[in-house]
Write a protein that binds this DNA or RNA. Structure first.
Lengths: 201, 201
DNA sequence: TGCATTCTGTACCGAACGGTACCTTAAGCA
DNA sequence: TGCTTAAGGTACCGTTCGGTACAGAATGCA
């Protein structure tokens, strides 16, 4: 995707592109797109404005790069979580526990950058189909988790799909709750509702 | 709350305050707070800027007024829906159907103004405890719906509370999906997951 | 009728915004 | 070492932002 070993012509770049993108991801995540100014981006990255514009384009293009990178990372994280969760209904419990551990962490409190962006930027510029992609990819990952939890003959049933949809929607709602300032106790409380529901599966 | 029959001194106001607030609610709902400029607010309301500032204060105070008004209206609407839904598990089904009718309407596509605001404005200024209020009040209303659906001896059980929490979180997630550009079919699809879940209660 | 009070409406303000021109510096290559 | 290329860094640009000063207009009250 990126080209770390680019043309060796001219003065080499002094900043680490990946490190800068990671820093700016955290900044946008905290503040949103609209409330983050170029001055703050310059300060957080430690890179001067013209260098940022040459490397990433406009503020909007920069945010698109951040979003794409975040989506890929997030989906990889989800897949790893689901893989570690293991099979059976217990796998769902373990997944929820790992999800909670992330949710109460400093980063998790901010909810999901993608959910935030889809709320803030819906219908502004072409190319923002991120939110649809996110929902679709997240649903796919959750589908794997549900499949792991069910006996083979139910893996393709209507109930399996309904449980996938329910869990997907529930997790999106949980991210709203996380971003809206809930503390660890309240997050635990809402997660418990899904634990109890899963027990009836 | 408002004082329609105020002091009769001086020149009377030419615009209808409630109508202006309704118009501006729709504007903020569509665009969010940050992406809406005072120039657009002036255009949408048909009221000149100094009159807006005298009537509502700054842009931020205006948005706070809009949010408070929206919260009250929305909760009244929820309560009415739940009242009309009636008792038993069928009541939940009817509630979901009415919720869907609203979700696929022109307004419903934008999700929930409150969810949007809590995503966009988290931690910006004091006085934005709206998101917590919203979550708490919404959970209360859903609690009534669940209570109506259960036999009396289960109305105060742990399961009743878990179902309330699950449905609340689910509805928040659905509002994310609604705002992120899902069409009527996809909304129906995700709602079906909850219908099937409710059937197991 | 004249005064006090409140709203309308034009025209404007300083500040902050996203974005860039341009010079300097550092590298590869001949 | 001189040329080409690309990045660093300063200083600045035009626009748009939220917000307001001020004069005119419309009401109640004496």
């Amino acid at each position: 995707m990126s080209t770390p070993a680019k043309a060796t012509l001219g003065r080499p770049r002094l900043f680490d592109e990946e490190a800068v993108l990671a820093e700016l991801t955290a900044l946008f995540w905290r503040q949103g797109y609209g409330r983050t100014t170029m001055a703050e981006i310059v300060a957080a990255s430690g890179v001067h404005k013209p260098s940022l514009y040459r490397a990433f384009g406009s503020k909007e293009e920069l945010f698109a790069i951040v979003l794409r990178r975040y989506l890929a990372e997030r989906m990889a994280m989800f897949a790893a979580l689901i893989d570690r969760a293991g099979n059976g209904v217990d796998g769902i419990h373990r997944f929820l526990e790992m999800f909670e551990a992330d949710a109460v962490s400093e980063r998790g409190r901010d909810g999901c950058l993608m959910v935030m962006a889809s709320n803030e930027l819906r219908g502004t510029l072409p190319g923002y189909e991120f939110s649809t992609d996110y929902r679709r990819q997240m649903r796919e990952r959750i589908g794997v988790l549900i499949t792991q939890a069910l006996p083979e003959e139910q893996a393709d049933s209507e109930f399996a799909r309904a449980r996938t949809d329910l869990l997907t929607t529930y997790l999106l709602g949980l991210q709203v709750i996380m971003r809206s300032g809930a503390d660890a106790e309240e997050i635990h409380h809402y997660l418990n509702a899904m634990h109890l529901t899963v027990d009836t599966w």
